[in-house]
Computed example of a mutant assay.
Amino acid sequence: MSRAVVYEKFGGPEVLELREVPEPHAGPGEVRVRVTAAGLNPMDWGLAARPEAAARFGITLPSGFGYDFAGVVDEVGPGATGFTAGDRVFGGVLARAVADHVVVKVPVPAPDALYPTPSGISDEVASTLAVAGSSAVAALAAVGLRSGDTLLVGGAAGGVGIFAVQLAKLAGATVIGTASEGTFEFLRKLGAEPVTYGPGLADRVRGITAATDLYGTETAEAALALGVPPERISTIAAGPTPPGGVRATGGADAEPGALKKITDAIVAGQLTVPIAEVFPVERIRDAVALQAARHVHGKVVVTL
């Protein structure tokens, strides 16, 4: 037998259950990964809580949970190429990552993903990269970020924000990040100038040339009010039609090689991945409750 986190009804963390399930095996053209860590994202609990969100992704009940994972290939099916048993890997599998084993087709069909984990990057860190890293790259690409820009980042201390801030700094931009006051020192260490979010944001910010809103629409609306052209403003969590013609984007829009760009920067010591807390899978409900509160600084990881 194997273990997996599943839910049979939509709701909060209380619907998640760690259960014994039949052990999956790699079939033709597939590899099996022994999962060691799973990084959590807002979309994970959003899909588990909202039937309409799950329906957009074709998720039906009962369902597994989570997308981001890291681990080791432990079975290679007939005809599967590109990976061998013992390879360290990371990536994503929609609504089934928080499990002892995941089976992935190769070549990997979207929205799933599988990449080799570079030496020098732990499984805990690797498990945080697929969604947040690719979303950050896409958000910055959508605004045409360039050296000399002053970028306003909404939700800068969150899971995507920690990547966006550091990638923007590496690109030569000045970064202003919205956050609560308790997060200011954390953001300064990442290289951002913090500013309090909330009503009146446009009155507290000056001189921005681009913006990316990683939480909702407040930052995008402030940037528009400050005269930033809509084509230099992006959102990842405002739906397909954000305000004022600004650019909606997400991880699926990231350029090929986006995650290699991030892993190269991590290996080179140019980018760090703050992990707020690590939970054993037996405490999946506590992990999701912390993630869903939206006040976490960095990433939340579950280990198996």
Rank of each mutant, 00 (worst) to 15 (best):
residue 193 E to Q: 15
residue 207 G to L: 12
residue 134 S to Q: 13
residue 20 E to R: 11
residue 43 M to T: 14
residue 128 T to S: 07
residue 270 Q to N: 14
residue 160 V to K: 10
residue 17 E to V: 12
residue 36 T to Y: 05
residue 112 D to N: 15
residue 104 V to R: 01
residue 293 A to L: 07
residue 201 L to T: 11
residue 42 P to N: 12
residue 267 V to K: 13
residue 103 V to R: 02
residue 35 V to F: 11
residue 274 P to H: 10
residue 54 A to T: 10
residue 50 R to D: 14
residue 25 H to N: 07
residue 215 Y to H: 13
residue 119 S to F: 00
residue 299 K to Q: 08
residue 260 K to P: 00
residue 133 G to V: 04
residue 246 V to I: 12
residue 133 G to K: 03
residue 27 G to P: 02
residue 212 T to S: 15
residue 101 H to S: 01
residue 275 I to E: 06
residue 147 S to P: 10
residue 272 T to S: 15
residue 224 L to F: 12
residue 183 T to W: 00
residue 7 Y to Q: 05
residue 32 R to A: 15
residue 302 V to W: 06
residue 93 V to M: 01
residue 246 V to Q: 12
residue 78 P to Q: 13
residue 219 T to P: 05
residue 251 G to K: 02
residue 72 V to K: 08
residue 4 A to S: 14
residue 255 E to H: 13
residue 242 P to S: 15
residue 189 K to Y: 02
residue 33 V to H: 05
residue 261 K to Q: 15
residue 174 T to L: 11
residue 255 E to Y: 04
residue 190 L to N: 08
residue 86 G to E: 10
residue 243 P to G: 15
residue 169 K to I: 15
residue 222 A to P: 04
residue 291 Q to A: 14
residue 267 V to W: 11
residue 266 I to L: 07
residue 27 G to D: 11
residue 223 A to K: 12
residue 50 R to K: 14
residue 107 P to Q: 03
residue 33 V to C: 04
residue 129 L to S: 02
residue 256 P to I: 10
residue 21 V to D: 01
residue 76 V to A: 06
residue 294 R to Y: 00
residue 110 A to S: 09
residue 163 F to N: 05
residue 60 T to D: 13
residue 21 V to S: 05
residue 236 I to S: 09
residue 71 G to D: 06
residue 94 L to G: 03
residue 118 P to S: 14
residue 106 V to I: 03
residue 271 L to Q: 06
residue 243 P to E: 14
residue 44 D to C: 11
residue 140 L to G: 07
residue 111 P to N: 11
residue 297 H to I: 00
residue 195 V to S: 03
residue 35 V to R: 05
residue 10 F to M: 03
residue 114 L to K: 00
residue 98 V to L: 13
residue 303 T to Y: 08
residue 259 L to H: 10
residue 211 A to C: 12
residue 149 D to C: 08
residue 273 V to I: 15
residue 26 A to Y: 06
residue 144 G to V: 10
residue 85 A to V: 15
residue 11 G to E: 10
residue 233 I to F: 07
residue 294 R to G: 04
residue 86 G to R: 06
residue 84 T to S: 14
residue 24 P to T: 04
residue 259 L to W: 08
residue 130 A to P: 00
residue 246 V to A: 13
residue 279 F to C: 09
residue 35 V to G: 05
residue 254 A to G: 10
residue 44 D to R: 09
residue 226 L to G: 12
residue 137 V to S: 08
residue 145 L to I: 14
residue 275 I to Q: 08
residue 124 E to W: 04
residue 93 V to F: 06
residue 76 V to Q: 09
residue 262 I to T: 12
residue 111 P to W: 14
residue 210 A to N: 08
residue 64 G to Y: 05
residue 303 T to I: 07
residue 223 A to I: 12
residue 303 T to W: 06
residue 132 A to P: 00
residue 181 E to H: 13
residue 94 L to H: 10
residue 110 A to V: 05
residue 77 G to P: 04
residue 302 V to I: 11
residue 85 A to N: 05
residue 135 S to Q: 04
residue 200 G to P: 07
residue 48 A to M: 12
residue 68 D to C: 08
residue 128 T to P: 01
residue 84 T to Q: 14
residue 117 T to P: 00
residue 145 L to Q: 10
residue 265 A to Q: 03
residue 244 G to D: 06
residue 126 A to R: 01
residue 190 L to Y: 05
residue 19 R to A: 09
residue 181 E to K: 15
